[in-house]
Each structure stands twice: as C-alpha cells, then as structure tokens.
Simulated assay, not measured.
Amino acid sequence: MTETVDRPTITVLGLGAMGTAIASAAAAKGFEVRAWNRSPRSRDELGLRGIELVESLTDSVDRTDLVVICVRDHDASRVLIERVASALAGRVVVNVSTGTPAQATESADHAAQLGVRYVSGAVMVPTPMVGTAECCALYAGSESDMSELEPMFDAMGGVSDVVGLNHSVPAVLDLAMLDVYIAGMYAHLHATALAAAHGIDPSRFLPYSQGIVQTLGASLAGLTSSAERRTYDGGDARLDMCLSFLEHIVSASREVGIDPALAEVVRAVSARAMTRWPGGTDWDVVGEEFLTAGHHVRR
C-alpha cells in the first residue's frame, strides 16, 4: 500500500446514496476519506463530515491507498477507470457499481487491459446498514488484490464475503437478492392495499404480513432442495391448490380495482406448469421453467 502520514486513505468516486454511505462509514471508522462526484455538491448537501471533497478526479486518487467506485452503472465506471488508470500506480480499485454479471465481467476485463488492479464488489444491504454489524458486501478478485482491501472491510463492517476469482459472482448474487427483496416489498404493498380495501388498516395487517414472511423464510430451504434435486413430491403445497389461491387473489384484487399484475404473472406460470404436471405435484415445480431456461449458462 501507498504510505500515508497517519491513517489509511480511501477515495470514493461517486456520491449517490450508496457512495455517500460508504464515505461516511469509512470516515466514522477513522479513515482519511476523499470523495469526488461528477456533479459538484457541498458537504452540507451531502450530509458529510470529516471528508475531503476533491474537484479534480485525478487529484482525488493521488496518494490514496484504496479507490472505491460507486456510480450509476458500469458504463460510467469504465469511463472513470480509463480517466484515472495512469494515476493509480498499482493501487487497487473496488467497483461496487450495480450491473449485470456480463457487465461486471466486461469491466474487470477492461480494467485488466488498462493494467489496473481491480476488484468487483456488491453491497447487499440498504444504505443505513453500511458500516454496521448488519452490513454484507461481496468481493471477487485475485488474492493479491484482495489483500489490499482490509480498509474497505473495516469501513463497511459486518460480513465481507470474498467469493473467488469470478467477477460475475458479486453481481449475480446482488441481483438475485434484489429479485427476492423488491418482489417481496411489492407483494407486501399489494397485500396491504387489498386488506385496506376491506377496511383493515395497514398497521393492523402488518403483523400478519410479518408472520407470513417468517413462514416463507422457513420454506426457502425446502424450495432450494427441490431446485437442487429437481423432484417435486414433498406434498406440502399442491400445484392445483396454489393455482386456485392465485385465481382468488387475482379476482379479489380486480373486485376492488387493484392491479393484480404480480399475482397474474405467478398464476400464468402455475397454469403453464399444470399443462405438463399433475395437479398433485408440489407447486415448487413452477421453478422448472426458470431452471431449464437458465441451464445453458451454468458452469
């Protein structure tokens, strides 16, 4: 690492919500923090304290120990890496910008072509959890590059999961978890509206929603086992029974003028499964449609 006068220095490029959270967490852990943003903003606007805002992108990475990039997408991050590559002098760049697995791999290859030491990352929690014991972040890269990330691990707090050399892994796990999380939030809001349409206050419905989420959590291991074994004979939730439930959810939503779009999607995939599997098959069999479609990309 580059020597610093006293504390390790972390430079954060990009001060959106997540970049600001990372910079704040690093400063709170005692690191010297520099930050650069494409659109100049004041510390007061950003709510930042104890962080040096640098106007020049090249100056921001000068004499720093670690560079963290957190911008809107990989197209933007690749442009930044091109602009600072000659100034990095062997220091590691950690890119936690969100993108697809293919984009993450392309960015890693692009950095290698520029001679940049590069680690792919993904922050798996909302911004308030960054820097706390509840934080979880994933990293992929070479062992030698990963050895430079102790300041990042310390700043982020919680779990720092090093997943190996494959730069696509942090991105795919990030999106897979968001797939569950965002669909779950949407389902909760839809269910809350359905209950409210029948005079049940959202706060009264909340404990019921929390309870069914706990039930779902307990069901995930069984769903995972079914997907691994590709067998659907546990007898816990029949395909025909779940399809009937979904028909009722769609009808009840339409009765009160609520868009049943998500339930309609799940109903449609369940109905397709019914054309190929007996009604007594576990509902988990709907996953065959995804597993078969994704089979060609497995390694």
Rank of each mutant, 00 (worst) to 15 (best):
A25Q: 07
H198E: 09
S39F: 09
P207G: 12
A17M: 10
A89C: 13
Y208D: 11
S39M: 10
A261Q: 07
I81A: 04
G90P: 02
F31R: 05
I22N: 01
V159M: 11
D174C: 04
V94S: 04
K29W: 11
T192I: 10
D73K: 05
Q103C: 02
L173M: 13
D145R: 07
A28M: 11
R276D: 03
S42K: 06
S42R: 06
R49W: 08
E150Q: 11
S253L: 05
M156W: 11
V250H: 00
T127H: 12
M1E: 11
C136S: 13
A112Q: 06
A221F: 13
L262G: 01
G184R: 05
V79K: 12
A218N: 10
S226P: 01
R83D: 13
S203G: 09
L48G: 02
V68N: 09
S97H: 02
D179V: 05
S147T: 14
R72E: 14
V54A: 10
D109N: 08
P207S: 12
T231C: 10
G131Y: 04
R78M: 12
G257H: 05
M129R: 14
A87C: 12
A137S: 14
I249G: 03
S244G: 14
M152Y: 14
Y232T: 04
L13V: 15
L57H: 07
N95Q: 05
W277P: 00
G115S: 06
M185Y: 09
V285F: 04
A21K: 06
A268L: 03
P207I: 10
G16Y: 02
V96P: 00
L80H: 03
Y186H: 15
S251Q: 06
V61I: 14
G115K: 03
D282R: 01
L239V: 02
G235N: 03
R117D: 12
A112I: 05
S225K: 15
V269W: 00
A87S: 15
G90K: 09
A197K: 07
R83W: 07
L175S: 00
R230G: 07
A196S: 08
E228Q: 15
L262A: 07
T98H: 03
A171S: 03
A26I: 09
G90R: 11
G222D: 14
Q210F: 11
G211A: 13
T275L: 04
A293E: 04
L243D: 01
A155N: 02
A23M: 07
T132D: 08
H110M: 07
V119Y: 00
G280P: 00
I200C: 13
T292L: 08
